[in-house]
Structures are given as structure tokens and as C-alpha cells.
Amino acid sequence: MLKVHRDICGYCGCCVSVCKEGALELIDAYLEVGPGCTDCGVCAKACPVGALEVERE
């Protein structure tokens, strides 16, 4: 599952632009992860501050 560390996220949209599933959306300052996420981790790599993490169960 993709975890958003909200204390780190700067709500910039960089991650949104690289998600090919269109699973992310910025609602002003709140990054929402939609049901389409496949846990591919591309967004987590692109984040300039490391606010995203794919948690493996």
C-alpha cells in the first residue's frame, strides 16, 4: 500500500505527473491516493523529499 507521509509532503504534484494509472490527485494541499494504485513505486522515487513509501505487507 502506498503511504503518504503528510508531515513531509510539500503538495507539489511531482508524483501526480509520473503516475501512469492516474491514481494520485492533489486536492489543494491534500494528496489523495485512489483505488487505481498498483504499488509500482514510481511516484515514491520521483518525490523530491521522500514523502511517499510503498509498504509491503
Binding site: V18, K45, A46
Partner: peptide, 22 residues
Amino acid sequence: VESKFSKWCGIDTTVPLREIMS
């Protein structure tokens, strides 16, 4: 850069990982 609207209209706006300046 987020460009969700066009995506919702069916146009793929995904930026390749190597071509996003983080």
C-alpha cells in the same frame, strides 16, 4: 504539471520517470 483534466478526457499526459525534474 499535474495535468489530471486531460487524463480524465482520455489523453495520456504521464511524464516518464527519467524526464521529470524532481
